[in-house]
Structure formats: C-alpha cells, structure tokens
Design a protein around this nucleic acid. Structure first.
Lengths: 204, 204
DNA sequence: ATCTTTGTTAACCAAATGGTTAAACCATAA
DNA sequence: TTATGGTTTAACCATTTGGTTAACAAAGAT
C-alpha cells in the first residue's frame, strides 16, 4: 500500500513477474491479470510498457534464452580439453538449474510451440556454432585421446544427460518413487557421476 | 458432406482428433472448436461424449501414457541382461518415436503442468516399480559384469540419452544447424551409437 | 405406423481475456 | 504557482471460448 506514483523500475517489476508466470504456465497458460497481480500493479501497465502479451512474452523468452546460451557456450567455445569441458559443464549445470528450475522446460516447451523463436534469437546475438567443438573432438580422436565419436553425437549426449532429468522431473520422480529430497540427492550425485559416465565411455 | 446421421464411431473420431490437437498444442493451447473441426464434427458432440475439455484431455493423456509406459517397462521388467535391455530399448525407441513424434514432449509438458496426473495413472494400471531393475544391476555389478553404478542413475541415463533429443528437437536442430533430413539422419545413427555409448561406459 | 431412445445440429449464453480509454496523479521545470 | 509530460488507475470493450439448449433426425422397439 502507500504506493508512490513514481516510476521506480516498474518495467523491471513487470518483467520479473512475467518471467515467473510465463515460465511456470507457458505462453498459453499465462494470464495478463495474473502477471499484473504478481507484480502488484495495474493490468494496463503491462500494455503501457510492453504493448501486448506477445511482446512481453518475447522479452521474457529472450531473457531466459540469454541465460541458457552461455552455459552451452562453455562446451562449444571454451579452450579447455574435451574432458575438462565435460567435467565443468556437468558440475556447474546442477547448481545453475537450482537457481532457475523452470528454465529448461520453459525454453524447450516454447521452442516446440514456435520453432521460429530460434531464428529470431540467432540473429540478435552473434550465435555460437558447433564447428569448433566438432574439430576439437575430431582432433582428440585423431590423437588417440578419445575413442571414435562424432562431435554432434557427443554434444547431444552431454546435454541430454545433464538437462533431461530437469525437464522430465515429474516423470522421473514418479517412476523412481522419489520425493523432493530424494530427487535432489540423486541430482547431487550426478554432478560427478554423469561426467564420469561420459568420460568412461569415450576415453581411450 | 452427405454425412449420414448414423453413429459410426464418432467417439473414436473425436479421440483421434483430440489426440492430434492436444499433443500439438497442449491443454491450454488447444481449442474445442479446433478439435471439432479436425474431427469434422459439431462442437456439441465433444461435450455429448466427453462432458468437458478436462475430461477429454484426461482421456487423451491416459491413452498417450499407456503407449509410453510399456516402452519403459521393457527396461524395468524384461528378463534379458542389462546389456540386451539397453540395446533393445535404444534400437526400438527411435522407430517408436517416428510414429508418435509429439508424444514425449506432450507427456512431459503436461506432467509438469500438473504432476498429480501421475498419481491418478499410477492407480489405474498395476504400475511398474524399478526394484527389479535395481537388483538386476546390483547383481551384475556384484558378478563383475558391470562397473559400479546405481540402478537409478543408469535408468536415468538410458532414458535421457534416448528421449531428450526428441523432446528438445528444435533446440538441437538450432544449435547443430540441421534441417529435418539432417536431424533424422543423426537420430538414425543413434539407434546403435547410443547403446554402444552406454555399454562402453558401464561394461567391465 | 408410432413411440422411444440415441445421435446430431445450429443457435445461444455467460464468463474470461487481451486490450483500450479517458481521466486522475504527481514530480518537476518554467 | 502553474503548465507539462510521463505514469497510473478504474472502467470499459470486443472477441474468444467452454459449455448449454432446444429442436430435429435416424433407428430400433412395440
């Protein structure tokens, strides 16, 4: 209450609220009123700052994606060895997700709903290509450090093993009969186990 | 046109149409009118056969889940060795997905939206537990066939490597700059590569 | 033939929802 | 003090949407 009429980063407040609601309910499930309530603000303000639901959503999505992309960049454009990359990425990922639990599912879900989002985002940022990683893997295979594997497949394996459990959390919890605590424990173990699992498989 | 007024499996027609629309757009994105159009049927019929959107959706979801569960059961309750299970599951999965491309994403998405669905389904069918697989893995580790690994983690790894690429298809296509054809080719390779990757890692 | 049950349709309805508007508010510069 | 310009609000609007209704048509039962 006692809200001053001064604009103290109303725009940011809206973006935070929109993030929360959109990431939880998706574009279709989210309601403008709910976002307004979450931001403790009049609904008309949403339109004042971001013309439409679509544009507000796009702001949230771009923001979310800009958090995920650098994570993957560590695999793609870092200078360390493949083994180090795997260890680093795997170890960091769990901690990262803990701070953004809805993020992977949100991005995947909305990218499925409208694959064109990828093109739009690809333009904005100088977007990373997998080329470097592919040549790096090929080189390490050549040197006899790694068993033969295509860079693409290894990349897919790394992100699958790391991201999937957080996308399919309810499925895994259901099949494994885990509560929040049990699930968290299992994910904590994966911080080291997953990288061992991968390296075990590819190292000569 | 020239539609007879006879009931020739209208209910099934509706279910098929609903499946198509719900799996593509999700509960929130789907429109009853669109389902009716897809089924080439009057909208009121949807309510005549399945009272509400919610109930129609639940019928579709249960149906979808009943397709996925047996797949996972092959890992859990089959009598073959762990190695054979991995090979079989991996090899079959791609072909299965080709017939139901929206299925994994649909199930995961809706399970995230409402985790209670799992409980409801768990009651209906005599639901499989992971116990058997866990003891099997423990036994093979004991015998020295496999390197030490927990059954839960191995299970998660298997389904992650197999399912994730089909859940995150647009993300992977984007990062790897693949068109439909390139993606399909890569997935075809995975039929054998994924099982080799896993077995490489765990076999002593 | 006629009555009854089941299936089907067009028209309709109330609620929800994204979006608009016009007036009020308030800090600040003139 | 007052004019100004961005900010905020309550009320409003048009459309969409899930759901209902009443009339009607087709078979089967009597």
């Amino acid at each position: 209450m006692a809200k001053t009429k001064i604009n103290q980063d109303t725009e940011g407040q809206i973006l935070n609220a929109a993030e929360k609601v959109f990431q939880k309910k998706g574009m279709d499930g989210a309601r403008m009123q709910e976002i307004a309530d979450e931001a403790d603000i009049n609904k008309a303000m949403l339109h004042y700052y971001y013309r439409s639901k679509q544009l507000l959503f796009e702001a949230v999505f771009a923001n979310a994606f800009s958090l995920l992309a650098p994570q993957l960049n560590k695999i793609i454009n870092d200078d360390s060895s493949v083994e180090e990359k795997i260890k680093n990425f795997t170890n960091n990922h769990i901690s990262f997700i803990a701070k953004h639990p809805y993020l992977p599912n949100f991005i995947i879900q909305e990218l499925n709903r409208n694959p064109k989002f990828f093109e739009q985002i690809q333009k904005n940022a100088g977007f990373p290509s997998l080329e470097k990683f592919k040549t790096q893997v090929a080189a390490e295979v050549e040197k006899g450090i790694l068993k033969p594997i295509a860079g693409e497949q290894l990349f897919i394996n790394i992100i699958s093993l790391n991201i999937f459990p957080f996308v399919a959390t309810p499925l895994i919890k259901g099949f494994l009969k885990l509560d929040d605590k049990g699930f968290k424990k299992l994910m904590e173990q994966r911080k080291t186990e997953v990288s061992e699992f991968i390296i075990n498989s590819i190292k000569k």
